[in-house]
Nucleic acid binder design. Structure first.
Length: 117
DNA sequence: TCTGTGACAATTC
DNA sequence: AGAATTGCCACAG
């Protein structure tokens, strides 16, 4: 069993459509933890390898508010994240992603969905 | 209970 | 544009 606190976060991350990215604060907000962006990082670091609810958690679609990958450039995690993003047609320049073009803009439908629980 | 930590964010220089 | 500083607060030990 894992901490329930992270479940909402993982599920929210799973809502991010392929080819899009979201910043930590955005996920925190949607997951019901406004202002707790740092919690997202912790939650993602504890994502089960097998994924969540039978589906993988696309942690690579989560970046910081500056539109950058939050890993040291050159690190293994960094490369892995960049690869995943590029596979999903997200342009990564150095350690940056153009938020203007690739940031996820949740629909009202999805917002309501995440609020209803 | 207290303390250190953190895959952040906003501000400032 | 990039580095340093400060605020944030749940979590882990």
């Amino acid at each position: 069993m894992v901490n329930n606190s992270y479940e909402a976060i993982w599920e929210t991350v799973q809502l991010i459509p392929q080819g899009k990215v979201a910043c930590y604060g955005q996920i925190a907000d949607l997951a019901g933890w406004p202002g707790r962006a740092r919690l997202i990082g912790k939650a993602l670091s504890k994502v089960p390898d097998i994924g969540w609810k039978g589906k993988p958690v696309p942690w690579h679609r989560v970046i910081n508010s500056q539109g950058k990958i939050s890993f040291p450039a050159g690190s293994e995690q960094f490369e892995q994240q960049r690869n995943h993003l590029q596979d999903e047609q997200v342009v990564v320049i150095g350690s940056r992603v153009k938020l203007k073009d690739f940031q996820w803009q949740p629909d009202l439908t999805e917002i309501l969905f995440s609020l209803k629980y």
